[in-house]
Design a binder for these strands. Structure first.
Length: 574
RNA sequence: CGGAGCGUAGCUCAGCUUGGUCAGAGCACUUGGUUUGGGACCAAGAAGUCGCAGGUUCGAAUCCUGUCGCUCCGACCA
């Protein structure tokens, strides 16, 4: 490609709309442009990167035995009614109607579509296992699109769906995808780590996320340096022994005692003088509305509620904190004085760490009063004990006991073991050896392709610009003639090398613009081509050209050796 | 959806508090010339109904109201 014949609108300054490095660089390097919030056009260079990532994914999916298909983005809403997700996922739908007022949804994902297909086409265990995938645009009405391609309303996803006759075979399918993902991210030149994850709205048995560590990431992972444990904080647990909190508790049982606490509204207030009650010795009482019914949630005052775990415990995503009005009506007290002691009529779920807790302090359910000496098991009518807290850094790893660390990361891929949730709901049954009708065991596997592109940049950049890994760079080589007069020795040498690299099937671009050297150097570094070949009168006078890897020192080389050297560097790719 | 901030030329921004030589700068762009190894210089030029709509006023980029768009934080800690 000739620079002068394509569009690479580089920017010297970062547009005000971009906040994080990768977003700024995508705009400055002329890869994308925004149409509207969460909607982006891929310019020629950005599209080349996107296609390279897609092709790596495609190759590894095919190698793993998955079959590429293409499903409609526009989907009738009734299949979502059937699966039950019309209600649970309604917030993310873009809905629309046809002229006959039938309702459609722009697909946020494709379990329903594919399961419907499988229901009609697959009748026998002899046809299994199967795994289908597609690379396609998804539509989600995100609460808040942000950071460019990181969280967009419209984005490209690779989604795969496996169907197996038995649980064991399903596990094999899952592992194949897991292994393929490891290869995909490795080939993309990005460091990604698999972590245990929450299954969220997908439902299902268990899952792993592939995350790319980055401070700008939107999820948090807990991980252990001493062993391989790593999990999304939504799922992460710790070996925190409940009795850790209780070691200083007196042996003799104490009776509950109400005491006045005017002005106390928060856990922190009660932790200060004159009360001096440590947060971990307080009970935090939360009121939630789950499927229109109230429940009480109890945690240590020092702990945070983990809504993902709550979703697992309640089996629904349709819950929210109660409003102040609802709390007052239900509890006869305001938030800040709530407590569950002696409470009946509203189910109480308590975090497991409270099970052995004695001598705790909690609201008296009467404004201006708290009660102390509470033994949770003795004094509170707990309907369910469960892990509903967020782990904190420094807590013992659940596997090996070393202190856990927490850091931010970008979720780039997710593999789910789904079980039979969708095959049951959408009638994807087959006849097994024994003549019995059984639901297929499903798995689903997603990679955010556009998000991965940006995540690569988030990880691969320096002060000058992007430092593309070779396998996903828009062009592997940029030839930079410093004199573009058509009949000059420099330009004819540049053209000669350009043609030879083209003939050798190298992705090469020649910067044939009549720009000053500084402009060309800055642009090639901003865009981030892995190899730059600089040709100027000065170097040519010495009988050499310059070969500058983007992230290594420049070398000079005889013109006739350039092609071999490039092949050597490019051939090193995986 | 709640909170905060921002909308002035393609991009980055000044001007707004105190209404009236207030349609501005730099970069980018066009033309001519000089330059040519790290974002050149000189000269001339093109480019904005100051997001939009109302209102106040003799007069509004500037004040008021509404609205749209964009960005950030939050949407759990009672």
């Amino acid at each position: 490609m000739r620079w002068s014949k394509t569009l690479i609108p580089t920017l010297r300054e970062s547009p005000a709309e971009a906040e994080i490095t990768s977003h700024k660089l995508m705009l400055r390097a002329g890869l994308i442009r925004k149409l509207s919030g969460g909607l982006y056009t891929f310019l020629p260079l950005g599209l080349r990167v996107l296609r390279k990532v897609e092709n790596i994914i495609r190759e590894e999916m095919n190698r793993a035995g998955a079959l590429e298909i293409l499903m409609p983005a526009l989907q009738p809403s009734d299949i979502w009614q059937q699966s039950g997700r019309y209600r649970t996922m309604q917030d993310v739908f873009y809905k629309l109607q046809d002229r006959a007022k039938r309702e459609f949804i722009l697909g946020p994902t494709h379990e329903e579509v594919l399961t419907t297909l499988i229901s009609a086409e697959i009748d026998s265990y002899k046809q299994l296992p199967l795994n289908f995938y597609q690379i396609q645009t998804k539509f989600r009405d995100e609460i808040r699109p942000r950071f460019g391609l990181m969280r967009a309303r419209e984005f490209i996803m690779k989604d795969a769906y496996s169907f197996d006759a038995t649980d064991e075979e399903s596990q094999v399918s899952y592992q194949k995808m897991y292994d393929a993902y490891v290869k995909i991210f490795h080939r993309c030149g990005v460091k990604a780590v698999p972590v245990e994850a929450d299954t969220g709205v997908m439902g299902g048995k268990f899952s792993h996320e592939f995350v790319i560590p980055a401070d700008s990431g939107e999820c948090e992972i807990a991980y252990c340096d001493a062993c391989s444990y790593a999990a999304n904080v939504e799922r992460a647990t710790s070996r925190l022994n409940p009795s850790d909190h209780e070691q200083e508790q007196p042996q003799a049982p104490l009776t509950p005692e109400k005491f006045p606490t005017p002005e106390v509204k928060t856990i922190d207030d009660l932790a200060k003088p004159p009360y001096n009650i440590k947060p971990e010795d307080q009970i935090k009482t939360l009121v939630y509305i789950v499927e229109d019914k109230p429940i009480i949630l109890l945690l240590r005052g020092s702990d945070q509620l983990n809504e993902a775990k709550l979703a697992g415990v309640t089996g629904t995503l349709l819950f929210r904190p109660a409003t102040d009005e609802e709390i007052t009506k239900l509890m006869d007290a305001h938030a800040g004085s709530l407590g569950a002691v002696g409470l009946t009529g509203i189910p109480v779920y308590a975090d497991a760490t409270l099970q052995p807790a004695q001598s705790m302090t909690t609201g008296a359910n009467e404004d201006g009063f708290h009660v102390r000496n509470i033994d949770v098991k003795r004094d509170i009518n707990v309907e369910k004990w469960a892990d509903i807290r967020v782990v904190k850094p420094g807590e013992p790893c659940p596997v090996c006991g070393a202190p856990l660390k927490i850091r931010r990361a970008i979720e780039a891929g997710h593999v789910f073991k789904l079980g039979t949730k969708y095959s049951d709901a959408l009638d994807a049954f087959f006849l097994d050896h024994d003549g019995r009708r059984k639901p297929s065991i499903m798995g689903c596997y997603g990679i955010g392709v556009t998000r991965t592109v940006q995540a690569i940049i988030e990880q691969c950049n320096d002060d000058a610009g992007i430092t593309w890994p070779l396998n996903v760079a828009p062009y592997s080589v940029c030839i930079t003639p410093l004199n573009t007069k058509p009949d000059s020795e420099v330009m004819s040498m540049a053209e000669d090398i350009y043609n030879k690299l083209l003939a050798a099937d190298i992705d090469v671009i020649i910067d044939d613009r009549n720009e000053r050297p500084g402009v060309k150097f800055k642009d090639s570094e901003l865009v981030g081509f892995p190899i730059r070949i600089g040709i100027g009168d000065k170097s040519l006078a010495k009988g050499v050209v310059e070969l500058k890897p983007r992230t290594a020192e420049m070398i000079t080389i005889k013109p006739e050796d350039v092609v071999d050297k490039v092949l050597e560097l490019v051939g090193a790719r995986t």
